[in-house]
């Protein structure tokens, strides 16, 4: 449990760091974005909105930096991430709220799938060294060097068209109302196939390579030889003994790799106009929608931290050394 408590403490610290980074970034923006917004909207913004934006951007020059900071933290604690410039007057939380499930679904499913597939292939590749599987390595490194989004572009060009089964963009057909109906879910799944496939094909290589390298190191250890000598079947030794130990670094690296996966997924969303958080962020870039940008950053960081925590729980379950007291 000490291990878990330590990790939790670290994540809380990281969250604080992300929040603080978020606090400082808008202060680098030249000029006053809030005034620009007011001018743009011709003065039709209520005072409370202006106030919250001022706190967000630290434009209330009468306060010291420290009190601005605490004000900002207080605002966050109330769940107020500001008002989105683009989607005015919708608050950022609403915008993100509708986009988040799409991203979570996409990243969640693809990451788990590519982890499982990559690791399984890596186990086999590491176990059966010297066979044709070794030739697979340069191929997978080629595949993993392809940027996610480019693969997305290619697959749109090849696999989609006006009448094809796979749609070229969007999360669901326009005109459908989102909801838990079967028709909608089926449609949403169809729309998610290409983006998901793109991500999986690109990221499998990384897991495969990592697992293969660990398997090679683990299989040279003495306890594997003992297992063979005990008369256990090759398959059993491969899974129960070798793979289980080789898996540990991959699991602990899982959470860390998530940061990179998030980046790639955002780009895929952009290419496919998939209505997730990434699309929101990248659209917000060109229109300088600062509150939205900051909101996305915070939300994504929280999600990654939670995923890391779950990965740590999985690691605790796998590695008995973390459970030993004293």
């Amino acid at each position: 449990m000490k291990y878990f408590a330590r990790r939790l403490g670290f994540y809380i610290f990281t969250l604080w760091a992300a929040v603080t980074i978020n606090f400082f970034i808008p202060r680098l923006i030249p000029g006053n974005p809030v005034d620009a917004l007011i001018a743009q909207r011709k003065g039709q913004i209520d005072d409370k909105a202006v106030e919250s934006l001022n706190v967000l951007f630290g434009l209330d020059k009468h306060q010291s930096l420290l009190s601005q900071y605490f004000h900002y933290l207080g605002q966050l604690a109330h769940g107020d991430l500001g008002i989105s410039f683009n989607n005015f007057p919708e608050p950022v939380t609403t915008v993100l709220g509708s986009a988040l499930p799409w991203t979570l679904g996409l990243i969640g499913v693809t990451t788990i799938l590519s982890f499982l597939i990559g690791t399984a292939l890596g186990v086999v590749a590491g176990w059966r060294r010297g066979t044709w599987l070794d030739g697979l390595l340069p191929a997978t490194s080629f595949l993993s060097s392809i940027p996610y989004f480019w693969l997305g572009l290619i697959s749109v060009a090849w696999f989609t068209g006006p009448d094809s089964f796979l749609p070229s963009s969007g999360g669901y057909d326009p005109g459908l109302i989102p909801g838990p109906q079967l028709g909608f879910i089926g449609n949403a799944l169809r729309h998610s196939l290409l983006p998901a496939a793109t991500i999986i094909v690109s990221s499998v290589g990384g897991w495969l390579l990592a697992m293969r390298n660990m398997m090679v190191t683990v299989t040279a250890e003495d306890y594997i030889t003992v297992a063979h000598a005990k008369g256990l079947s090759g398959g059993r030794v491969m899974t129960r003994y070798a793979a289980r130990n080789a898996l540990l670094p991959s699991v602990s690296g899982f959470g860390m790799a998530l940061g990179l996966v998030v980046g790639g997924t955002f780009l895929v969303e952009y290419v496919f106009s998939y209505p997730g958080v990434g699309l929101q962020l990248l659209n917000a870039i060109s229109s300088h929608d600062y509150p939205l940008i900051q909101g996305v950053f915070l939300v994504v960081t929280v999600a990654v931290l939670v995923a890391n925590l779950l990965a740590d729980l999985a690691y605790m379950a796998l590695d008995p050394r973390t459970r030993k007291e004293g």
């Binding site: 670290f10 994540y11 610290f13 990281t14 760091a17 992300a18 980074i21 970034i25 808008p26 680098l28 923006i29 030249p30 959470g255 860390m256 998530l258 940061g259 990179l260 998030v262 980046g263 790639g264 955002f266 780009l267 962020l281 990248l282 870039i285 300088h288 940008i293 900051q294 996305v296 950053f297 994504v300 960081t301 990654v304 931290l305 890391n308």
Partner: peptide
């Protein structure tokens, strides 16, 4: 070590996108 762990966990691309966007 904690500082480097923080930078690993925070998603890189969003952070870079934000910073490059904001810095003129």
């Amino acid at each position: 070590s904690t500082v480097s762990n923080v930078f690993i966990v925070i998603p890189a691309l969003p952070l870079i996108v934000i910073v490059t966007n904001v810095v003129p």
